[in-house]
Structure formats: C-alpha cells, structure tokens
C-alpha cells in the first residue's frame, strides 16, 4: 500500500507528529496507512546481545517494560522526558526516530547507543545505522515507499553508567539542549564512552571526539572539560524562543557535563560487552535480503522529505 501510494503516502501509528504537521498544512499526504494495529510492528525483545524494539512500540510501552529497564535503563529515562502522559500513550519509537524532527529525543539516544534501524519496503529490507540516518531537519535516509519496522540496539555492558540530561523551558517542551551519555568503567578507568546531543543542530549529533576524550583514563576534571569543549564545538543551534545560539551551545556543554557526572555516579564495574552476532540481521524482522545504505546522503529522502516549502 505504501508503495502504491507513491510519494504522498505515509504510514501513521501514533500520529502525534504527523497530525499536527497536517493541521499546520506542512504535510498533506493523500494516503495514510494505519499501522498501529499490526502486532508484528510492536513489542520489545531483550536478547543476550541486542534489544529489538518494534517501530510501533509506544513510549508508554517502553517506560512500562521492566526487562528493557533492566537491560538499558537510559531508554526509560529518555522516554519519560518526552512530551506528556497522553502523548506517550500514542507516540511510537519508529515515529520519533523516523520523522527526522531535530527536537525529538530518541534519535540522539539511538546514536549514543549505536542503534540500527531496520527499513523495509516492498522491494526488501535494509539496515541503516542511526549514526548515518539523519541528513537535515526532516530529511533522512528513508526512501519513498520505505518505513522503519524495528530498531536494534546493541545491549550495553552490565554495570554501565548512563544519563539523559535535558534542559527544557517547561515540561513537555522540546530540549533547549540535551545530552545522552553512556560510560563503562573498569577499575576506575573509562573503557568505553558514548555521547550524543539533541536539538543543537538540524540533526542529532554523535559527539564521537568528545567521547574519545574520556576513554582510556579515569574521569577527571581535565578529561571532562576536554569532552565538553569537543561537544560544544560540533553544535550549530539556531536561535529561537529557547535562547540564542551561543546560549544553547553552552547549555549543550552543561548537559554533557551533568550527564557524565550522573552516568559516573550510576556506573558499577562494567562487565564484558555482550558478544554481538556476526550480523544483526538475524533478529531483525523479516527475511528479505539486506542491502547497505549506499545513498551517501546525496538523494535526500525521509518521512517528511515531501514537506511543502
């Protein structure tokens, strides 16, 4: 159906991004395909090496899952900061990561966790890393006729530290700036770290160089300050009602600093990383052949790639 509808067909699950966009006349799909009742698109499977979450799984479902919280608690922490209770009953992971809104919280978290999006269309299935998925505001690697069906997250090491810190003007608001941090401490030294930023550019940002500043040494004022500086350096926020660009860059740094401190306080002795299967496609939905994302970012697609200018 999605393929038959062409560029103006969209899947709808929670509809809490799409319907407001339609009201604003920023989106005018001619065909909507309700996928909310497709059971195979919803659900959370926590495996020994990876976590697979169906695209139509709601934020409420993710918050409620004790298995998910035990394996990867930062997902609940982040989901609880999205919008308000009514919206979380409807809003889905697939919609949050797939529509390319830079204000959404899950995209940066998925970049931090190294998640893979399983994208399916009538012609097959492919996997796109969250770190390669976002091209510009509302422009993503998704092609017309294609949708995200599930998200695969490598299971973090037991004992890892984590935090999602979000500065917002009021509850329910998009972030002025937010940071997701995961840390693995072994014998007081940082074995691995990952940092990503929300809403301080027109895409989520993986702060790989910032994380690199932390790895291989105990956390210290010097390494944290270096990481904050590297994170601030990659931001490119716009000035809006949430503050000037300079302010939002500084707040991104503050969120990184707070998230590192909170992650450190929560970190135990990190256990060995769960071994990943040779290909993550084993647990992905569907058995269609996997192809790589060779788009190179040139052809801009995406859920809202057809936005009226």
């Amino acid at each position: 159906m999605l393929a038959a509808g062409g560029e103006d067909a969209r899947p709808i699950a929670g509809g809490h991004s799409l319907i407001p966009m339609m009201k604003l006349r920023m989106a005018a799909p001619t065909t909507l395909i309700d996928i909310a009742s497709l059971d195979e698109l919803a659900g959370i499977a926590v495996g020994p090496a990876q976590i697979v979450i169906g695209a139509a799984t709601t934020q409420h479902d993710m918050i409620s899952s004790e298995d998910l919280f035990a394996a990867c608690p930062i997902i609940r922490e982040t989901a609880e900061m999205i919008a308000d209770p009514q919206v979380r009953y409807c809003g889905t992971l697939g919609g949050n990561v797939g529509n390319g809104d830079p204000g959404n919280d899950m995209p940066a978290l998925m970049q931090c966790l190294g998640a893979i999006y399983v994208c399916e269309s009538a012609s097959g299935s492919r996997e796109v890393s969250a770190r390669d998925f976002y091209q510009a505001a509302y422009f993503t690697a998704l092609q017309p006729g294609e949708m995200i069906t599930s998200v695969c997250i490598p299971r973090p090491a037991q004992g890892h530290g984590y935090a999602y810190c979000k500065l917002k003007r009021k509850i329910g608001d998009y972030a002025t700036a937010a940071a997701a941090v995961t840390l693995e401490l072994v014998g007081g030294s940082v074995r691995d770290a990952s940092i990503a930023l929300t809403n301080v550019a027109d895409t989520p940002l993986l702060a790989a160089e910032a994380a690199q500043q932390l790895i291989g040494a105990p956390l210290s004022e010097a390494t944290i300050t270096a990481a904050v500086a590297r994170a601030e350096a990659i931001t490119a926020p716009s000035a809006d009602g949430r503050g000037s660009a300079e302010y939002r860059t500084k707040m991104a740094g503050v969120m990184v600093r707070r998230a590192i401190a909170l992650a450190q306080s929560r970190a135990g002795e990190a256990q060995p990383k769960p071994a990943m299967p040779s290909s993550s496609s084993g647990a992905a939905a569907g058995s269609a052949p996997t192809q790589t994302n060779d788009d190179g970012g040139k052809g801009k697609g995406g859920f809202f790639g057809w936005l009226k200018s």
Partner: peptide, 11 residues
C-alpha cells in the same frame, strides 16, 4: 488517556 484532537476518528 488520549488527546482526542490529535487522533482521527477512523483510527
């Protein structure tokens, strides 16, 4: 709990 202004009735 659903905000009924942001759902289509057909859903």
């Amino acid at each position: 709990s659903i905000k009924s202004c942001t759902r289509f009735a057909v859903q």
